[in-house]
Design a protein around this nucleic acid. Structure first.
Length: 614
DNA sequence: CAGGGGGACT
DNA sequence: AGTCCCC
């Protein structure tokens, strides 16, 4: 009972000859201009205005008021404002609220069935095959039907004979109900597509926009696929695959349908070749996979130009602070840290990133009764900078247009966590003669094992809270298993101990009473703070315009964005200014005992290395 | 400055 | 770690 066109494949094309019985019923739900809707729900005053959501210089989406006035998705901000000067803009760089709405929407779908697969923040595939029985008594179709009206009226029952007609009609009722519930719980409107596979459901969901739905019956598949014209409009055929096909003289879906598998196999392996052909016929056997929680959590910041190491540190530090909040919300313990950069490249322009990763010890996130604190941040910062230096040779000129940081593996199950924590504590015992290892071991075990418990949740949440610094001794045992990493990655800070002082939370000073060397580092830093960050100057720094009129203004180092600078915590502002000062006036900074005793053994010089500051 | 994510496969 | 895909 497959459609005729599905048999047009080559004889050797075995997969294509397997009939598609359309046994499944799949929904694709796609939120209308997602970011714009979220902002309109959050501020109903925006409803009637032309609204654009921007990220940097790009308007990533806009509401339908704006669209009716000639603005399109993914326009340059400049172009959008030229067309529509009255466009109201909201910055959508921080995805926090979008993530929240997104998971609420998926959660509504999950009340129907667990078979929900997320695609990006605003799309969900739902396999409703399991629950279709509850909806079979509906005879009327909800929403639109793809294709010619007359054509569909011919088939008023189930011409296919496999029961797909009845199931798809039932699917339209589920889609209707789901969209209604999403609207009631979140205030967000969606489109939906109903079909017998993911490809088709997705293709058809956008046929009537916004806030509408469409069903596709199998006998319309051929017409639908032909109407796509270019192969590029098939999900799964991206720019690279499209160009490869183009090289073979295949540009349209029809050409792909008529292509010979052997020709495709000159550019793709057999499996891929077959998949491409299947797609052109609207055949897609891929299952709807439960999405579960994200497998990575990361943040990026793009910009036009960063050329100095201090700015890099500032960017990573800022991203890391936000990332730790996301991590605390997530509740899981990460096992791997990934750092990325995008180097300026005239040819590639964008898209390409270089990345490096390292395992991170789970103890970094679980040790310490008072939770993870500033110290964890600087530990991770050193990891980050270590990876960064593997990608960028800061002794030479460099030009970055993006930095990113993320966690991409998580300790999932109690058993795994147990094994991992045992592994770490074992290593620690062998390598150090740590009397406290018993205590640490039990800490790790307990926390990791129950990392979903409320108690542990609290520990995680305290990442971001101001909390007290642990003693140096505790530090050394906590991180000793990552010794190798620290030695490599701490290099930057070794070379400029004055920077270290600026990392210290001023509220934690009491912890260092009596430690002369540490106090000295801190004093250095606090003097710097007093000198450079007086309230007046802060005001000046935060306002570009007033700054240009005042003579007392701080002159920021080249490459430092004033807006970025003013948004930073004082300690990082100091770091920048200090670094810039040192650049012009390299001076010797007296060495102090630093936070992690291991370092002192490896420090080679007391002098500030102006090269690292660039 | 396409942005700010994410996933699967190799 | 890189490539390709998706939104």
């Amino acid at each position: 009972n497959r459609t005729r066109e599905e048999s047009h494949g080559e004889q050797e094309d075995e997969w294509a000859l397997i009939p598609d019985h359309h046994q499944r019923t799949i929904l694709h739900v796609d939120v209308d201009c997602f970011y714009a809707q979220v902002e309109m729900v959050r501020d109903p005053g925006l409803r009637d205005k032309p609204l654009g959501i921007k990220q940097k210089n790009l308007m990533v989406t806009c509401n339908y008021v704006a669209r009716s006035l000639g603005v399109k998705k993914s326009m340059w901000l400049k172009d959008a404002l030229e067309i529509l000067p009255s466009l109201v803009l909201v910055d959508g760089s921080d995805l926090t609220h979008y993530r929240q709405f997104s998971s609420e929407i998926s959660a509504v779908a999950q009340t129907f069935t667990p078979h929900v697969e997320r695609l990006g923040l605003d799309e969900n595939f739902i396999d409703v095959t399991d629950i279709i029985g509850d909806y079979l008594n509906n005879s009327e179709i909800e929403g639109h039907v793809f294709g010619d009206k007359d054509d569909n009226q011919v088939h008023h029952s189930d011409p296919c004979g496999c029961g797909c007609y009845t199931r798809l009609v039932a699917g339209t009722h589920i889609a209707k109900e789901l969209r209604q519930q999403i609207y009631e719980t979140t205030g967000i409107t969606c489109c939906a597509g109903v079909a017998h596979n993911k490809l088709l459901a997705k293709l058809v969901s956008g046929y009537h926009k916004p806030n509408q739905q469409t069903v596709l019956f199998p006998w319309q598949v051929h017409e639908m696929m032909k109407s796509l014209n270019l192969t590029r409009s098939i999900p799964g055929i991206g720019s690279v695959t499209y160009k490869a096909l183009e090289d073979l003289g295949i540009s349209t879906v029809q050409q792909l349908q008529n292509s010979v598998l052997k020709l495709l196999m000159t550019k793709f392996d057999q499996e891929t070749s077959q998949k491409l052909k299947d797609l052109s016929f609207g055949i897609d056997k891929t299952p709807v996979r439960k999405s579960g929680r994200p497998q990575s959590i990361g943040l990026e910041d793009a910009f036009r130009k960063i050329t100095c190491i201090t700015a890099v540190r500032v960017k990573y530090y800022t991203l890391l602070e936000r990332l730790l909040k996301l991590l605390a919300d997530d509740g899981r313990i990460p096992a791997s840290l990934k750092v990325s950069v995008r180097k300026f490249d005239r040819v590639k322009r964008f898209g390409h990133r270089e990345t490096k990763q390292v395992p991170v010890s789970s103890s970094v996130f679980t040790m310490g009764v008072k939770g993870v604190n500033e110290d964890t941040k600087s530990y991770l910062m050193n990891m980050i900078m270590g990876l960064f230096h593997k990608m960028v040779d800061t002794k030479k000129d460099f030009h970055l247009t993006l930095v990113g940081v993320g966690f991409n593996k998580f300790i999932e199950r109690a058993q795994d966590a147990q094994a991992i924590s045992n592994f770490f504590s074992k290593r620690t015992r062998q390598q150090t003669d740590d009397q406290n290892s018993e205590c640490k071991d039990s800490n790790v075990t307990k926390r990791t094992k129950f990392h979903h418990s409320p108690t542990n949740r609290k520990v995680l949440e305290s990442f971001t809270a101001e909390s007290s610094m642990v003693s140096s001794e505790e530090n050394s045992s906590r991180f000793s298993s990552d010794e190798d990493c620290i030695e490599e990655n701490f290099k930057d800070i070794y070379e400029n101990p004055a920077l270290l002082g600026t990392h210290i939370n001023l509220e934690e000073l009491d912890n260092y009473k009596g430690d002369k060397e540490v106090e000295e580092v801190i004093e250095n830093a606090s003097e710097t703070r007093k000198e450079l960050i007086s309230p007046e100057i802060k005001m000046c720094v935060s306002d570009d315009r007033s700054c240009s009129e005042k003579s007392a203004c701080i002159r920021l180092p080249n490459g430092i964005d004033r807006e970025v600078f003013s948004a930073l915590p004082g300690e990082l502002q100091q770091e920048i200014l200090l670094a810039s000062e040192n650049k012009q006036n390299p001076k010797v900074v007296k060495q102090g005992k630093v936070l992690k005793p291991k370092q002192t053994n490896h420090r080679k010089s007391n002098s500030v290395n102006s090269k690292t500051i660039k």
